[in-house]
Design a protein around this nucleic acid. Structure first.
Lengths: 141, 141
DNA sequence: AATGCGAATGAGAATGGTTATCATTTGCGC
DNA sequence: GCGCAAATGATAACCATTCTCATTCGCATT
């Protein structure tokens, strides 16, 4: 019940722009997309959605729990489908490729550290910035 | 040799704006400051430094290794003196207070995870967003 | 201490990502 | 099919940050 399959169960009317953007996230092979990226993809496939609407829809989807927003080192926000499983990210500095990981030990340490400092964790973000040049860097920039 | 005491050893002329900003970081009790914050502090103490200069100096200091730049959840960059000891951050969502920590286990796990994925770590950022309301939240917003 | 020159600064314009405004259009219950 | 609230598109506005360019300053050299 963390990620509703359709828009109405998220309390959102099913409109053309929303459906297009949602299906983009579900079908694109790149899980992590920016507003501008989405706008460009839609326009290059002949779908006209205004940039303002892209931003509005992304924010709504985030609030509805459909999407997660990330702030990597670039200035723009990046979004991914919220599949309900928390994970952290490795971001390639060469090609912007993003890989996901989850580590029980890190999660546990964080909880303990926050507790030791008297805090209650709300959320956290862990981004590892790295080079994947020795591997097959998929989309060199 | 990681954090030069003065500007010339960092290859920077010692000018009034640079000296003021550096001493602000060295003397202010809040280690983490934004460009706007610095501008405001300087102006309320009668020191006139233009906002453009604040931004320029912060960027130069960062490149010289004097300062570290962080992107917390707010849209603006936050800086702190680079004392040469890496650490991560807990950011209070109530009052923006920042606390630092360092955990050997987390560092080790990160290195291992990156290696397992075939990456070479360049750097990483770990921010824990939390509530310190149960403690004495110093500057309620 | 006066000179000169490249670097630094200030004021304000410009930029890039994102949000707000408002007239027009659309989804959808009746 | 009607009607109205909600959603959209076009564009202006916003905010943090960077750029431009004329003026000023640090500092090495006389």
């Amino acid at each position: 019940m963390h990620q509703p399959k359709n828009l109405q169960s998220a309390g959102l009317k099913s409109t053309t722009p929303r459906l297009k953007i949602l299906s983009l996230f579900e079908n694109s092979k790149e899980r992590h997309l920016s507003a501008e990226g989405i706008y460009n993809i839609l326009h290059s496939s002949g779908e006209d959605v205004s940039l303002a609407t892209v931003y509005r829809v992304l924010t709504q989807f985030e609030q509805a729990g459909l999407l997660l927003r990330h702030h990597f080192e670039s200035e723009k926000s990046v979004f991914e489908l919220n599949l309900g499983k928390h994970h952290d990210h490795i971001v390639c500095l060469q090609c912007d490729h993003v890989e996901e990981f989850y580590d029980t030990a890190i999660e546990a340490r964080q909880k303990k550290i926050a507790a030791d400092h008297g805090f209650t964790i709300h959320e956290h973000s862990l981004y590892i910035y790295a080079d994947c040049t020795k591997r097959n860097c998929p989309n060199k920039r």
